[in-house]
Write a protein that binds this DNA or RNA. Structure first.
Length: 865
RNA sequence: GCGGACGUGGCGGAACCGGUAGACGCAACGGACUUAAAAUCCGUUUCCCGUCAGGGAGUGAGGGUUCGAGUCCCUCCGUCCGCACCA
């Protein structure tokens, strides 16, 4: 009869023990090496599915591994609890955002506990808790005082029917997602945080983040987008009104000035707007541009369109030459000056535009090996290197020389200056929504913007709000909105915008260090724990969240709140879990557990013969119902099985598909480990009684396998290669499976191997490991046990197998002493029959020997030929 | 459109620094055990030709560098992520 591991019984039992012993509670121990592991905290959207779990399981493996290595580990969890879904639920289900959110948090917390995560729950925080957001309001006020927070006008997507601002994702084909109304661009006065003040620093410090993925650093670098260029002024020759007498442009290619054939203004450029006042067709064109929303992707994929304003500007160097001025839909007001000059020959966008409006295309940069007279630009702009041509005083110069020459002249003439421009814009944080952190200011007609005094903090969200009317409930809340001015006492009104939820997540990692402090943070605690040693989350946050957090940490450093400028020393971006999708005949999505698959791979609705269509494999999401709840796996297979499966096979940074076959495989593994341990346990020498010895060949082999596994798994966990660690453990288990102890030495070696196996799986399948540890007679808990060390003597291999190639093609292999000299390898290689056959009559030209790796015999044509 | 990544057997993937491609898992097939099934154990499994021996091809496509390329370079194709009010 086989021995079964009853996960459903064992797992809750061990979780109760961990909880009772409070072994995951983090306490600052000055002098002890610390390790702060953090997964990006979840938005409490409802129930979690197994797809959310991967992130936390990876973090938990790191936390448990580092704890075993002797680090004082901080592994906290909290809730990114403000955001739009709570308000959408309020509108659709008549639930209050707070109740909806709190219920979700309670449900999700239970689910996370089920996963067996080694989290210090005493540090739990929720961003919608006034105890959290009061500190966030304090930080905001510090920013306001220091000039890092300010107000200005900016454009938003406006839904005229719902009377609300729309997120870019809520604008679908230019229409509001709920109302279907055509979206307008509207100007609102909004709060901004001056992230651009740190642009250079945020860029430079990327170099120091050597434990971040290269791709994330590159993305941030491009996002910040530092470029050196020239800002200069065009004089308008036929200005109809005073505000249109000059046009300022910014360019990174001043060298191409003689190839300029037009100027283009952003639709909301002040000159465009001024001209539109007396030009109805232009006003219509601008209105049309505004219907395309504010997203960069939408603007850039649009067909390039322009409107000729009739204005002409003088070319700065060509006497008498003028260029037309267009308003163009692809020019962004938010970048540079909101106006450009177009050089079609050397910029693809400008070229498309010029072809459409039949503007001249004059090449001014010519590749060095081409004659200027032969060089033409057809459908593709030339952006490569070359020499200047058709450019008067620039002719013959390199691009760099020409850029400098133009800049010098413009600066000399007082019409331009060199400028460093960033793509990065200041961060607009105003949201016209209820469920967010209130911005703690009061607007007074007499005193202006007045910060809410410290004694009145926090500005709490009122609970008595309704969502039955369009717009922001705070804006129509009479008693909350209307207050006395703290300065002059006259009637004033509260700021009704709330903060972007990205603000909430920009400093929570610091709050976790002292989650119950009545200060923003406790300086001693942040000094001990920060930076986060390992941060784990999805790549989708590679730019915004991580950049905002880096900015906030710098701001907090400026205020003396923290000592570090960089919040995350190590970053890992994990992939999503995917699953097949299913639809019934009517086209409705089905949950995987509503579907049954037959032998032929065809699917039917469970318990019926109704055909189910199997759709593509996609990211697990509630909307497509391709989700698996953790409870379902836990109750039948155990969460360790789910954890093991999530770590197996697929590299952690890649998307991984959840399949029943994979779960079955993981389940077999957990059973197998348990069986090997329990079948052998009784027959082993007592723990610690006999030191492992290697006098028998079988014992030595097992010990070598054990120690290689220890070394490899340690390196793989260290390097975030969980799938490889899993493979190495399978290898050890395969060895153990066939191992029949004979001599006493074998049994001691077997004990060593089983204990090592238990310790190695402990970070990944912690409940199973506790059970095995108990069976093996281990003291205390495996969660508190020390990580095993590999003995270098047992890892070394004395003989190596090296491949022998003839002209790069493998013809055989030789087994030879490690580090054998070249002559020996050469002799052995040439002695192989297959090798001599492959050489045949050819002359040996050279033999390449790479020690312990390969021998390659290079042969030429036949001897004497 | 711009920016970033990825592409290896039937499937997920491994391959450290340019050095035996396919570790490990899944699936499939064959066998053992069993009254039978499940579970378990043993074996085979990149493809093509071949009974074997052996030979040939092969890491999205095409080219290049090298004694040697999955790995480096160029061009192309495909898939995925981000683009500032989703989190």
């Amino acid at each position: 009869m086989s021995i079964r591991y009853n996960a459903a019984e064992a797992e809750p039992r061990w979780r109760a023990v961990w909880e009772r012993e409070q072994i995951f509670r983090a306490v600052e121990r000055p002098g002890a090496p610390k390790y702060y592991v953090l997964e990006m905290f979840p938005y409490p959207s409802g129930k979690i599915h197994i797809g959310h779990g991967r992130n936390y399981v990876m973090g938990d493996v790191v936390a448990r591994f580092k704890r075993a290595q002797g680090f004082n580990v901080l592994h906290p969890m909290g809730w990114d609890a403000f955001g739009m879904p709570a308000e959408n639920a309020a509108m659709e289900q008549k639930s209050h955002p707070r109740q909806w959110t709190e219920a979700n948090i309670a449900a999700m917390k239970e689910q996370l506990r089920l996963l067996g995560l080694s989290i210090d729950w005493s540090r739990e925080i929720a961003t919608c808790d006034p105890a959290y957001y009061v500190q966030q309001q304090r930080i905001f006020l510090k920013m306001l005082n220091s000039g890092l927070a300010y107000r200005r006008e900016s454009s938003v997507n406006w839904d005229p029917v719902d009377q609300t601002v729309l997120a870019n994702e809520q604008v679908i084909d230019g229409r509001g997602w709920r109302s279907g109304a055509l979206v307008e661009t509207r100007k609102l006065t909004q709060w901004f945080l001056r992230i651009t003040e740190f642009a250079d620093e945020l860029l430079d410090a990327l170099k120091t983040l050597d434990r971040w993925p290269e791709k994330v650093r590159v993305m941030q670098e491009n996002w910040i987008g530092r470029s050196e260029g020239l800002r200069f002024q065009f004089r308008v020759t036929n200005a109809p009104r005073p505000e249109a007498e000059t046009i300022d442009v910014f360019t990174t290619r001043p060298d191409t000035i003689f190839g300029a054939s037009f100027c283009a203004l952003a639709p909301d450029h002040p000159v465009s707007l001024a001209l539109a006042e007396t030009d109805a067709p232009l006003a219509d064109f601008i209105a049309e541009c505004r219907r395309h929303g504010t997203s960069e992707a939408a603007l850039e994929t649009l067909e390039k369109k322009g409107f000729d304003t009739g204005l002409r500007v003088a070319h700065p160097f060509e006497e008498g030459e003028t260029l037309p001025v267009y308003v163009a839909n692809f020019v962004l007001m938010g970048y540079g000056t909101g106006a450009i000059f177009g050089c079609p020959a050397h910029d693809q966008r400008d070229l498309d535009f010029a072809r459409k409006y039949k503007l001249p295309v004059r090449p001014v940069v010519v590749p060095v090996d081409v004659l200027p007279s032969d060089f033409e630009v057809a459908d593709e702009a030339y952006t490569g290197d070359g020499r200047l041509a058709n450019s008067h005083f620039l002719n013959g110069m390199s691009i760099a020389e020409a850029k400098a020459a133009v800049a010098d002249r413009m600066e000399g003439a007082g019409i331009g200056e060199r400028q460093i421009q960033f793509r990065l814009r200041d961060w607009g944080i105003s949201r016209q929504r209820y469920w967010g952190c209130p911005i703690p200011v009061i607007h007074c007609e007499a005193c202006g913007v007045v910060p809410v005094p410290e004694k009145d903090l926090p500005v709490r969200l009122p609970d008595d709000v309704t969502f039955d009317a369009p717009g922001n409930p705070l804006d129509r809340h009479p008693t909350w909105k209307n207050v006395a001015c703290p300065d002059c006492g006259k009637p004033a009104r509260r700021e009704t915008d709330t903060m972007d939820t990205f603000v909430d997540s920009s400093w929570y990692f610091a709050r976790f260090c002292s989650p119950h402090s009545d200060q923003i943070v406790d300086r001693a605690a942040v000094d001990y724990w920060l930076p986060v040693d390992q941060y784990i989350g999805g790549v989708e946050h590679a730019i915004l969240h991580l950049l905002y957090a880096r900015f906030y940490t710098r701001a907090m450093q400026r205020f003396g709140l923290v000592g570090e400028a960089e919040p995350f020393a190590g970053l890992f971006t994990q992939g999503m879990i995917t699953h097949e999708t299913y639809k019934d005949a009517a086209g409705h999505w089905l949950f995987p557990d509503e579907v049954e698959k037959g032998e032929d791979g065809k699917a039917v609705r469970k318990g019926t013969d109704e055909a189910v269509q199997i759709g593509p494999i996609e990211k697990m999401s509630k909307s497509k119902k391709n989700v698996v709840p953790p409870e379902a796996v836990a109750s039948t297979y155990g969460v360790d099985c789910a954890r093991w499966f999530m770590l197996s096979d697929t590299p952690p940074e890649r998307d991984s598909e959840w399949t029943q076959a994979g779960v079955d495989g993981a389940w077999r593994f957990t059973q197998r480990v348990f069986r090997i341990v329990s079948e052998n346990a009784a027959d082993l020498p007592p723990r610690g009684a006999v030191g492992p010895n290697a006098s028998s060949a079988t014992a030595l082999e097992l010990r070598q396998a054990t120690h290689r596994a220890i070394a490899d798994v340690t390196a793989d966990l260290e390097g975030f290669r969980f799938n490889r660690a899993v493979a190495r453990i399978y290898e050890l288990v395969n060895v153990l499976n066939g191992f029949k102890p004979a001599a006493a030495d074998d049994k001691a070696a077997l004990r060593e191997a089983l204990e090592a196996l238990t310790l190695l799986i402990a970070p990944m399948t912690p409940h199973l490991a506790e059970e095995c540890w108990r069976i093996l007679g281990g003291e205390k808990l495996v969660a508190l046990a020390q990580w095993p060390a590999a003995d270098p003597e047992l890892i070394r291999r004395d003989r190596v197998t090296i491949a022998v190639q003839v002209n790069g093609k493998r013809r055989g292999e030789i087994e030879i002493a490690r580090d054998a000299d070249e002559e020996t390898v050469r002799g052995a290689a040439l002695g192989l029959e297959a090798v001599t056959r492959a050489i045949g009559d050819n002359a040996i030209r050279k033999v390449v020997v790479v020690p312990n790796r390969i021998a390659n015999i290079v042969v030429g044509e036949a001897k004497g030929a």
